[in-house]
């Protein structure tokens, strides 16, 4: 599970020199990020550091102004959420983006329903949905329950289960534990470990350093839209992390990718 083993393989996701501006605001400046299979990479930073913007760029919600995104070593263009999904990138957005009026199965398959001509294969979708919830060892009463009747933790479970529809290679979670109680948070962290065991690359965006330290293999810090440090989770102290997040320490020298520009 260590990042040294992972580093010898082709990364599932490699972001190189990605930049994104909103008018005068530099949301992302030459950001690099690499994620390997079987690896949970945490993306941390203060408010407005560019974490969610990066998630949106990778999941096709926004196009970057410049830079390259590679999947399994191949450069890809991700113009829309469905492009991202087809490329094997699944995202859980901050406000868990579920339709409360629809049931669990309908939400899991939303936008990618199993179909026969234009009719849905309801039975098949329910079967797959039950299978996925079993993999996550979740406590959802029934796949036919409308989302409106679920607790916050159960909703987040559904949002994470959604990422397993199709055959994803990379899962991006944007603040999955932000609105959850302690017990529900523990459940979600278990789900994230299951994603790693399934061999996926996971990007975990979070404010909560305890959660990050509990589940991640590597921690990448963003500050003012720039990379500001990369740490092995096992060998980093809380002080070092806080220093990088608040800007007390800067990235010392130009990173290799900056050389030759």
């Amino acid at each position: 599970m260590s990042s040294t083993v992972a580093a010898t393989r082709v990364p599932v996701l490699a972001i190189r020199q990605v930049s994104k501006r909103f008018g005068p605001v530099e949301a992302l400046v030459d950001v690099d990020l690499v994620v390997h299979p079987h690896e949970v990479v945490a993306l941390v930073g203060d408010n407005g550091a560019g974490k969610s913007t990066l998630a949106k760029v990778v999941s096709g919600v926004m196009a970057p102004d410049s830079g390259v995104i590679e999947l399994d070593g191949e450069p890809v263009a991700i113009a829309s959420p469905s492009d991202a999904h087809q490329a094997g990138i699944a995202t859980v957005f901050q406000d868990y983006a579920l339709c409360e009026n629809l049931d669990v199965t309908a939400n899991l398959f939303l936008g990618r329903e199993l179909r026969e001509r234009s009719l849905m294969r309801d039975g098949e979708m329910e079967r797959v949905a039950r299978g996925i919830l079993r993999v996550l060892t979740s406590r959802i009463p029934s796949v036919r329950t409308p989302i409106a009747h679920l607790t916050a933790g159960q909703r987040q479970t559904v949002a994470i289960a959604r990422t397993l529809i199709g055959s994803p290679r990379l899962v991006i979670l944007d603040e999955p534990t932000a609105a959850l109680s302690v017990a529900h948070t523990a459940e979600v962290l278990n789900h994230i470990e299951r994603l790693r065991e399934l061999g996926l690359g996971v990007v975990l965006i979070s404010h909560n350093l305890n959660d990050v330290r509990a589940v991640s293999d590597r921690i990448e810090v963003l500050r003012h839209g720039r990379n500001n440090g990369s740490f092995d989770t096992r060998n980093v102290s809380q002080e070092e992390l806080l220093a990088a997040i608040t800007g007390a320490t800067q990235v010392p020298e130009p990173r290799p990718s900056d050389v030759g520009r």
């Binding site: 959420p81 469905s82 579920l98 339709c99 409360e100 629809l102 939303l110 936008g111 990618r112």
Partner: peptide, 11 residues
């Protein structure tokens, strides 16, 4: 039900 969610889901 949720315009935003539908959009993000690729509807």
């Amino acid at each position: 039900g949720n315009l935003n969610a539908a959009q993000l889901s690729g509807v």
